[in-house]
Simulated assay, not measured.
Amino acid sequence: MSTDKVIAMIPARYQASRFPGKLMQDLAGQPVIIRTYEAAKSTKLFDEVYVVTDSKLIYDEVQNYGGKAIMSHEEHDCGSDRIAEAVQDMEVDIVINVQGDEPFINEKALGQLLQVFNEDKDKGVDLASLKVKLTSEEDILNPNHVKVITDLNDFALYFSRSPIPFHRAKDIDVDYYKHVGIYAFRKKALMDFYNLPMSPLEASEKIECIRYLENGKTIKMVETQEVSIGIDTPEDLEKARQRFL
């Protein structure tokens, strides 16, 4: 059994580009961010759970609920940067990034991530993340679904919003995988990321994991069937509300 200190960090921007204010939208009597916080706490996998945010509105909501919230002091372009600022002075080993807009996070999937580090005796894994198989052409072509390809040992080679791999040889069967936006990192890898500049590839794709890969970090991908519902649009919010009925 691992003796690492494991915390969950939920980065929570108020001004999401596709659905501004979505984390404060009502989801069965509580804001989306509170539902996500509740879900992370209920897994009992973490020593602590925090929401880290640039919004006084979200900060106050979490604090009033009785949760733990941290205000960002700097502007950040991605969740990893926001989390890194929050944990830089904390004594922690493993940090799990739980997306604030995924209130149906699954205990089994999170346990799969933590198991990677439990088994990594040589500490050769910098990050672990989840992937799920895509089966419909619509999902494969959807740029909102970040795709990932891996090597034969399930370490990530690249992430893209484009369909990867390109299926040129139609007589060859290939699988497509979506990167599920929950991942875990060793604190050192996270702080290294924080101190490295964003590359044109990362800026172009708007995928922060690319920065890790370009700087030699290893990302172990774990296939899961535990698909969570992310809330990127008002339509997604309606689907989420249906699950509480």
Rank of each mutant, 00 (worst) to 15 (best):
M1W: 03
K5S: 05
A8P: 08
M9I: 02
I10P: 07
R13K: 09
G29M: 13
G29Y: 15
P31Y: 04
V32L: 06
I34H: 04
R35K: 05
L45T: 05
D47L: 05
V51W: 04
K56G: 15
D60E: 13
N64K: 15
A69W: 15
H73A: 12
E74V: 11
E74R: 14
E75V: 11
H76I: 01
G79N: 07
G79T: 08
S80E: 03
D81W: 01
A86L: 13
D89K: 15
D89S: 06
E91L: 14
I96Y: 07
N97M: 05
V98W: 10
E107Y: 03
K108W: 03
L114F: 06
Q115K: 10
K121A: 13
K123L: 02
L127Q: 11
A128E: 05
D139Q: 14
I140P: 01
N144V: 10
H145E: 08
V146D: 00
I149S: 11
I149W: 10
F155C: 01
L157Q: 07
I164C: 15
F166Y: 15
F166N: 15
R168A: 08
D171C: 11
I172W: 12
D173W: 00
R186I: 00
K188C: 03
D192I: 02
N195M: 07
L196N: 08
P197S: 10
A203E: 12
S204R: 15
K206Y: 14
K206P: 06
R211Y: 09
E214Y: 14
N215H: 06
G216D: 02
M221H: 11
Q242Y: 04
R243A: 09
